[in-house]
Amino acid sequence: MIPLDASHLPQVEALLAPDRANAMFILSNLRTHGFGGDHPHGMQLGADAPTPTALLGLTNGGMVLPYLPDPDHGPAAATLLRGQALGGVAGPAAMVRPLLDALDLAAAPTILDADEPQFLLDLAAMNIPDGPGTLAPLSIAPDTAADWRAAYDGELHLGEPSPDAARADVDDCIAADSHRFVMIDGIPAAMTGFNATLPDIVQVGGVYTPPGTRGRGLARRAVALHLAEARATGVRQATLFAASDAAVACYRPLGFERIGTFALVLFDGKVTP
């Protein structure tokens, strides 16, 4: 595979645009940060050819974002990653797992190694549940948002929750205006957000309801209200990954339908293949 630069952006977008739901993180990173740069999410890209049929993204933070439609692309992609310090891999499971095998990292120690069902929703057909609550930005209660973010990471078994890291994440969310509370009687009751955004599709993430308000459908309503807000700006689709049966039960009534499987692998410390 060969390195790409900003001049290849039209070819990259031509490859990924028809499959946006499976390329959200690459496309959103490029839209937000462009090629390179010094932001942790800034990304370098490699491809099989200047007009690519396969892509491999690597962020400055060490996250690998593959778009490798043919499993046979794995060995060639692995050559670009040799000697790099890697923090994890995220993408469609059919693209991630062959790459990990090619890197000899399938058995590397991890803090998270999950294959999760992926869903897609046409927002024109979304069902918005009745119920209480209105949307508000996280800036209305950033300390609550940081506490919930730390609890969310803890429930996903992402290591010991870090208040500083959670607050930094929340600060980023506030700056990007990407997340929302659902408020009931002026008090935050649930949280939702978009982890990646494009003009016509968003990827839902960071959905959290504190234990005291679970079982009332608040997460479902939060997601629906936020998606309705996005729909009003021209967004037409939403995708997400469900980490549990409870999450699947939350999202399906909105109209989400399964389209595949997403793999998220976070190594226990950086690894160098």
Rank of each mutant, 00 (worst) to 15 (best):
K270H: 14
F194L: 07
P109S: 05
P92Y: 06
P137M: 11
H226V: 03
F241S: 13
D177E: 11
V265D: 00
G83E: 00
N127E: 12
A242W: 10
Q203R: 10
A196D: 09
A106G: 13
R180T: 08
A78W: 07
A114P: 02
G42Y: 12
G88A: 09
D104S: 15
D115G: 04
G131N: 08
V265C: 01
L158T: 03
A228C: 03
G159D: 09
L27D: 06
A168K: 04
L16V: 08
A78H: 08
R252E: 15
A219G: 09
A263G: 03
M191I: 04
E229T: 03
E155T: 01
P137H: 12
H157C: 07
A224W: 06
P211Y: 11
D185Y: 04
G62W: 08
L100D: 03
G260R: 02
D115C: 07
T79G: 06
T134N: 13
L198F: 05
P52F: 04
F194N: 11
E116Q: 12
G205W: 01
A222M: 03
A168L: 02
E160Q: 15
A93R: 12
L138R: 07
A242G: 09
N22V: 05
P3K: 08
L135I: 12
A14T: 08
R167Q: 00
L99V: 05
G154Q: 01
L254E: 01
D245E: 15
T233G: 08
P3A: 13
A145I: 04
C173F: 15
G255M: 02
T134M: 10
P109N: 07
R82H: 12
A125N: 14
D70R: 14
R220Y: 05
R216L: 06
P161G: 11
G217T: 03
E155G: 05
A106W: 03
Q203K: 08
G36Y: 00
A141F: 01
P163S: 02
D172A: 15
D5R: 13
S244T: 15
L56Y: 00
I2T: 07
R97F: 03
Y152G: 07
L68C: 07
L112F: 11
I140Q: 13
P199I: 07
A242Y: 08
R216A: 10
D113Q: 10
E229H: 11
N22F: 08
P50C: 10
A224S: 02
N195I: 10
P132K: 12
R236S: 03
I26L: 15
Y67K: 07
A17H: 10
P188C: 01
R31M: 10
A85N: 09
L100Y: 03
A224L: 05
L55R: 06
P10F: 06
G87I: 03
V271F: 09
L156Q: 12
D268N: 15
G217E: 01
